[in-house]
Design a protein around this nucleic acid. Sequence first.
DNA 1: CTGAAAGCGCTTACAG
DNA 2: CTGAAAGCGCTTACAG
Lengths: 331, 331
Amino acid sequence: MTISLSDIAERAGVSVKTVSGALHGGSARMSDETRQKVKAIAEELGYVTNLAARGVRQGWLPLVGVVSDGLITSPFATEIVRGLDGAARSAGMAVFAVNHSSGQSIGSVLDEVQQFRPRAVAYAAMYHKDVDLPPTLAGSVGVMINCREASGRVTSLVPDEEGGAREIVRYLLAAGRRRIAFINLPGILAGSLREKGFRAALEEAGIDPLGVFPAVRRSVYSDRAPSLVSSHVEALLSGQRPDAILCGNDRVAMEVYAALARAGLRIPDDIAVASFDNQVELASRLDPPLTTMALPHRAMGRLAMEILLAGQPEPPHLRQLPFHLVERASV
Amino acid sequence: MTISLSDIAERAGVSVKTVSGALHGGSARMSDETRQKVKAIAEELGYVTNLAARGVRQGWLPLVGVVSDGLITSPFATEIVRGLDGAARSAGMAVFAVNHSSGQSIGSVLDEVQQFRPRAVAYAAMYHKDVDLPPTLAGSVGVMINCREASGRVTSLVPDEEGGAREIVRYLLAAGRRRIAFINLPGILAGSLREKGFRAALEEAGIDPLGVFPAVRRSVYSDRAPSLVSSHVEALLSGQRPDAILCGNDRVAMEVYAALARAGLRIPDDIAVASFDNQVELASRLDPPLTTMALPHRAMGRLAMEILLAGQPEPPHLRQLPFHLVERASV
DNA sequence: CTGAAAGCGCTTACAG
DNA sequence: CTGAAAGCGCTTACAG
C-alpha cells in the first residue's frame, strides 16, 4: 500500500499536522529535532506526497492545462509546450496538453480540462490566427498563445510577423541586396502581416519590391496544395532577375534551392535566399545552410506560463514577441 | 465559487449520494425522474466534476504520466504522445508528459510523477536505445516505449528495425535494383539492427551488398556531426555505380538527392533512393517525393496505452512493431 | 429506491 | 512548540 502522513505520524509518535508541517510547511515552527526525525522516517518509508489529496483541500491541482487546436504534431507546437513546461516545472507544476480535435466544441474540451481543477489554462493555436473564444469561456482561459483573441478579454501572445519581416529585409539590404522578391504563404494571417513588413522595410529604404508571389495556388496554405514555387523562380530568373528571394518558410526555401540549382545559379553568390521558421533539421542541412527567422515559440510558451502563474494579472492585451535571426550561409 | 455535489443535492432535495449516483454511477438504481431532475440541476448550475476529490477517494487520478528522456521536440516523440493520447482519451484519461532532463535522476522524475497518483506511467525514449531501469523503479513503470529495458522486468515496445530494413530492400529488389548501397546512421542501435536486415535481405536474394557507409564521422549520430554523405556518393558514382541507395533517414536522403543532382543523375531513372523515417514535411516536398519506411511511433503509443489500461497485465516481453512503407516516387 | 455516515489523505484554523 | 478536530468534494459500504 502507498503510505500516508498518518503512517509517518504514527511511527514518529507525533500528530499528522506535525508531519505535514515538517515535510511541506517550510515556515512551520517546530524543533529541528522533530523535523529531522519526521523527514528521516518519511524517506525510510518511501513517502510520496499525494497531490490529489492536497488538491481537494486547496481547490486546485498543481497542473496547467494546455488546450490546442488540432495536432500537437508540429515542431512549433512542441516548442510552445517546452517553453510552458520549463517555466511550469520551476514552479512545481506539470503541464498536461489536451487537443481540441475537430469534432469537439471548445467548450466541451475546456470542461474536460476543468475537471482536473488545474491552476491555470492556456489555449495554443498551431499557427498564427484569429480565434473567437465564446464569451462564457473567456474567464476560464488565462492566456492565448499564437493567436489573437477577438474580444480582447484574454491576453494574447503572438509572433511579431511584421517586425520579423522588416528585420530580415533590412538584413538583406545590409548585405547589399536590392532586387528582392518574396515567395509568401498565401491565405494566412502570418503571410499578410509579413507582406506588410516586407513592403514597409523596402519603402523605408526607397526601394521597389520585385514582387510578392504565392507559394501555392490554394487560398489557404497546406502541405498538399500544388507548389508554384519553381514556376515563380523560373519566371523571375527569365525576367528581372532578383539578387535575393525571401521565402515564406523553410520548405519553400528548399524548393527555391532546387529551382536555383536547376538553373545553375549559386547561393548566395548569385542569389541570396532567406526565409521564416528555422526548422533546424531542414535549414541546417541545406547546402548552403539556410539563413532564416526563427519564430518565438519557446518564448511565447515561457511568457505564457509566467503570466499564468503571476499573482497579479495585468489587464488583457496583445503582446507581439520578436523573431530571432539565425544567420547561416545563404545570404 | 465552484459548485459541488452537495450544492446540487440541496437544490434537488436529495442526498449527495443520490446526486453522485445520478451523475456518474451509470448503474446506480434510482427513479428516472430523480436522475433527470438531478442532471438538469447540475447542468443549470454548471457543475464540473472534481477529479481531484474523486482521486483522493479512489487512490488515483485519471492521468497517465509519460516520462521521456530529454526533449519532446522531435516529430517522432510527438507521434508517440499522439498515439498515447488518442487511446487515453477514449478511456477518459489525460496524458501528462514530464521530461527527464539531463540533470535529474530517473528516480526523482518518477517520484515527481507519482505525486499525481497517475493511473499508469510509461517511459518513452527519443530514439531506439537500450535503457537500464533501476530495479526499484521497474515496478512503477508500466511500459517502455522505443527502448529495450535491460532487465526484462517491463514490457518494451520498439520498432522492428531489422524487419523494416528487410522490407525496403525487398522492395528495391522487386523494383529490379541489384547494386544497392546503404548510407547508414552509425553508432546507434537502429543503425546496427537495420544493417543486419539489409544484409539478410540481400543474402536471401543471393546478391552482394555494394557496401554500408556511415552518414557521419562521429561514432554517435548527431545533427552537428560533419556529413560524409556527399563524399560517399561521389566515391560510389566514380566506382561501381549503384542503382539504388538506401539512406539512414530522410535528411541523409536529402543530401543524397543534392549530390546526385550535382552529378547530373536522375532519380529514380538512374538511381533509386529510399530511406527511413517518413518525416512528411521533408519527404513529400523533395523532388521526386521520397519513398521511405515510416516508423511505428503512433502505433507504439497506442499499444502502450492499451497495455497500460488493460486489466490483466501480460508477462513482460519485448514487442517489435512493424514499419510501414510509404511509396512515393523515388524508387 | 434513498439517506446518513465513514473515510480517502491532506491542510488549516482552533486550542492549549 | 504540538495536538485534536474540522473540512475539502467525492465514493462506498451500511442501513433502512
